[in-house]
Amino acid sequence: MLPVVDSFERARSHLKPQTDQEAAIHKSYQGIYKQLVDCFKRIGVAPMRPEGKPFDPNFHEAVLQEATDEYPEGTVIEELVRGYLLGDRVLRHAMVKVAAVPELTTDADSDEPE
């Protein structure tokens, strides 16, 4: 079920309704998304919200690395695919982007700094 939630979220961030009509359709679909999230909440599923926390392989899966001065090394700076908990068990690991030390980027095979 979680990939469905992902897709709704992607739709919300990607779609920019231009007209009122489009906005109405978009809104109604986002209503379905809210309903879905509510259902999950009721059975105890909670998103992890890992941004800003130190990387922990128990909950996170590092997918990307980015050189940055803003965060200490090893901090999760972006959640790419949302992780979920069911109670205290991991339902799905969050795929995250992790902060790296800028100097290391050349040999660490990571992304270009923004």
Binding site: F55, P57, N58, H60, E61, A62, V63, L64, Q65, G74, H93, V98, A100, D107, A108, D109, S110
Partner: peptide
């Protein structure tokens, strides 16, 4: 050190 699934999950940020 980390072994198994945990090690795999941090591999990207710690390849070397």
């Amino acid at each position: 050190h980390l072994v198994g699934q945990l090690a795999k999950r941090q591999a990207v940020m710690n390849a070397e």
